[in-house]
């Protein structure tokens, strides 16, 4: 027996156990997301993949599809909340796109474009977070970290290293590195780690190749992320 639910008014098939995100992706429907990466367990922290289900909004990456469920992925109220969540992320960190090597290849930026965000709207917090350039192959700009924990998860679950963790709480939550000095260069992090390649923003960046591909010709410069797909599918072009 086949199962179906309604996604933006379209009858859509699903396999029991699938999340809304998985079922939508299988059906070729894009739901914007940042902390979600199919290689790792659903996380649900960024709240960008909000979809409407009844009178509630839920994260598509953590919510299982139910038979007959009606999911709203496109209404203005859903988009407005996603935009607000993105504006909060931009206000929280230091996202100076013109100065960022990841610009154009950045999933945070691309998702913000997708939702029609023109400005961060809220008063920026301008946190003071020094850059860590101690590693020979990678730099970390903590000001660009959106706390999606993908590097934490990749390092722990894939690389078996536990290089990263989140410390503090509330607005003081921040990414930390496991090494005696707290610096990346002093940790067991290596360029071949999965954790080096999962960051959806410009927080974890390879050195020496920042502008190999000029601005204007980058991943999300010409077509939206809904068509281009996640960074994950284009790693060779980006890193």
């Amino acid at each position: 027996m086949s199962h179906s639910f309604t996604l933006d008014g379209q009858e859509t098939a699903f396999v029991p156990g699938q999340t809304i995100m998985e079922a939508a992706q299988a059906a070729g429907v894009y739901i914007p997301h940042l902390c979600h990466n199919p290689d790792y367990a659903p996380h649900g922290s960024c709240r960008v993949c909000l979809v409407g289900v009844g009178r509630r909004q839920v994260s598509a990456c953590t919510t299982r599809v139910m038979e007959g469920m009606e999911v709203d992925n496109a209404s203005e109220s859903v988009q407005a909340n996603r935009r607000a969540v993105l504006q909060m992320l931009f206000a929280e960190g230091n996202h100076i796109c013109p100065a960022c090597e990841r610009s154009g290849n950045c999933q945070l930026q691309a998702v913000a474009y997708y939702t029609g965000m023109l400005a961060p709207h809220y008063p920026p917090f301008f946190p003071r977070r020094p850059v860590d350039a101690s590693h020979p192959d990678f730099i970390i700009d903590f000001g660009r970290c959106i706390l999606c924990e993908l590097c934490v998860r990749a390092s722990r679950d894939h690389d078996g290293k536990r290089v990263f963790a989140i410390s503090g709480r509330g607005l003081a939550s921040h990414l930390v590195i496991d090494s005696p000095s707290g610096l990346l260069g002093d940790s067991c992090f290596a360029a071949a780690d999965r954790a080096a390649h999962v960051c959806p923003t410009g927080a974890i960046l390879p050195k020496h190749k920042g502008f190999e591909r000029p601005i204007g010709e980058r991943l999300y410069d010409r077509e939206p992320i809904s068509k281009v797909g996640d960074l994950r599918a284009h790693e060779d072009e980006v890193d």
Binding site: C46, M88, L89, E92, Y122, L171
Partner: peptide, 21 residues
């Protein structure tokens, strides 16, 4: 609430501090 947000999700972590300010 700004002090007690665990910081996991964006709306509570950032929104709580925006409200407080």
């Amino acid at each position: 609430f700004a002090h007690e947000s665990c910081g996991f999700c964006t709306p509570c972590r950032v929104g709580g501090s925006l409200l407080h300010n």
